[in-house]
Nucleic acid binder design. Structure first.
Length: 423
RNA sequence: GGAGAGAUGGCCGAGCGGCUUAAGGCGCACGCUUGGAAAGCGUGUGUACGUUAAUAGCGUACCGAGGGUUCGAAUCCCUCUCUCUCCGCCA
């Protein structure tokens, strides 16, 4: 959500930001509605003042046993006038909100121009891509050959885009989640949180998943939503709050199941477990002051990178261009892991600074110092990491010629000391 | 799922159509008092929006949320959400 005041102050700059995302200008319309609304509201408030006075006078007269018919008649007339004004104010507010709720966040000036992922800018690459003396296989070839990754049974149970893991591979998925949580809590200062997986409309709206992306998530019959990411409950946990500035930054992490309808992704990544309706993810969320969110964004991205570095998986950091930056984000880094079986870099983490965009939607503020006015917090979210995709990256990078998979050192304590799967 | 009771300012708690401009208490801030402190006394104490150069004033709204009745609603009516108690079921 945007601040109508800053929009009013510089409508041209606002439209210029929209244009970077390929959107039509709207500032003129919004400013006009706002102007109209404020005028109507001022008049309405004058009438409310009169209503208050009238009611008091009538009360005084009644207590004195005097006649108040004339004043009561004025009250009836006043109410009719107020009804129309009130409707106008509400309608103008509704129009503005409906339009604003569907406008994406303003981009950081440093976000490069561009329409799609081809214009994303590589920031740096980490790790040496392993040289294979055999043709590396894709994760699903490895997993199915091991008999531990079963798409057929999953589709029998649930349909397409689900997977069932067995044995050591199932444990490896669990090990990855534990490892990531332990790293972020023990070394990165995040507090572990166990979150609800079903949330209400408010939580989804606050984290900008509604109203625009309703078709991307699953809705229950009683009107709740299966979370598309733990970002939703983690971030919305501070909705409506006025936090003590001294407690910031808040750093939270959660391992959760995530559910996505993948509407519009038909035909994309149909093989394997890269794109599923259900997957596990360790999410990081930070709540900061406006002054520190930029540094926090770098820090958070480093936390995600550290996971890949400890696992020994080559990756590159991409700064997303204007056209590829998500709806709620001002600036986003994607981490792409190297997948030898696919011979491609694939997204494994996305770290975004939403600045005060989500904070406005969910009314999350902090008080800088006692006695000062509340200020909107900045919220950031990042995957640290997508567990299913990390499983893929481990399998493909650590595969052996015989189809077995060496377990990275850091995961062995979580695997009961196991060094290799299969072979 | 059934029966019942609730939701009031940072907290406790009164009010149950107009005399509430939400009593009283606690907490907090400032001042007076004091050698210093406590006690005591005094003053202040939220959020949003409008107006404004203003985070100064002034105004309006807000007593869980949304509707309604009324000249006037914390108070009456309706719907919803949440909390608590008891019963049933259950990991």
């Amino acid at each position: 959500m945007h601040d109508i005041r800053s929009l009013r102050a510089d409508p041209a700059a606002f439209d210029a930001d929209l244009a970077r995302r390929g959107l039509e200008p709207v500032a003129q319309q919004l400013v006009a509605w706002d102007e109209e609304r404020r005028q109507a509201q001022t008049v309405l408030q004058e009438k409310q003042t009169r209503r208050k006075a009238l009611a008091r006078e009538i009360g005084t007269l009644k207590r004195a046993g005097a006649d108040s018919a004339e004043l009561e008649a004025e009250g009836v007339a006043l109410r009719a006038e107020m009804e129309a004004l009130e409707e106008a104010v509400v309608a103008l507010e509704r129009n503005s909100t409906a339009l604003l709720a569907n406008l994406p966040n303003r981009l950081d000036p440093g976000v490069p121009a561009g329409a799609d992922e081809n214009a994303n800018v590589e920031q740096h690459v980490w790790g040496d891509r392993r040289v294979f003396d055999f043709t590396p296989k894709q994760h699903f070839e490895l997993g199915e050959a091991l008999g531990q990754m079963d798409f057929g049974t999953a589709s029998k149970l649930s349909g397409a885009r689900f997977v069932l893991l067995r044995g050591a591979l199932a444990r490896l998925e669990r090990a990855l989640g534990q490892f990531m949580l332990d790293l972020h809590t023990a070394e990165h200062g995040y507090t572990e949180v166990m979150v609800p997986t079903l949330v209400n409309d408010d939580a989804m709206y606050g984290t900008d998943k509604l109203p625009k992306f309703a078709d991307q998530s699953f809705r229950t019959e009683d009107g709740r939503w299966l979370i598309p990411t733990a970002e939703v409950p983690l971030t919305a946990s501070v909705s409506g709050d006025i936090l003590d500035g001294a407690t910031l930054p808040l750093r939270m992490t959660a391992l959760s199941q995530c559910f996505r309808s993948e509407a519009g992704a038909a035909g994309r990544d149909v093989r394997g477990m890269l794109r599923q309706h259900q997957f596990e993810k360790v999410e990081m969320v930070s709540v900061t002051t406006p002054e520190t969110s930029e540094a926090e964004h770098e820090r958070m991205t480093r936390c995600a990178e550290t996971v890949l570095e400890r696992l020994g998986i080559p990756y590159r950091r991409m700064l997303l261009c204007a056209g590829d930056t998500g709806f709620g984000a001002a600036r986003t880094y994607d981490l792409e892991a190297w997948l030898p079986g696919q011979n491609a870099w694939r997204e494994i983490s996305s770290c975004s600074n939403t600045r005060d965009f989500q904070a406005r939607r969910m009314n999350a503020r902090f008080r800088p110092k006692a006695g000062e006015s509340p200020v909107f917090v900045h919220t950031l979210n990042g995957s640290g990491l997508a567990v299913g995709r990390t499983l893929i990256a481990v399998m493909e990078n650590y595969q052996n010629a015989d189809g077995s998979i060496t377990i990275p050192e850091v995961l062995r304590p979580y695997m009961g000391g196991l060094e290799r799967i299969g072979g």
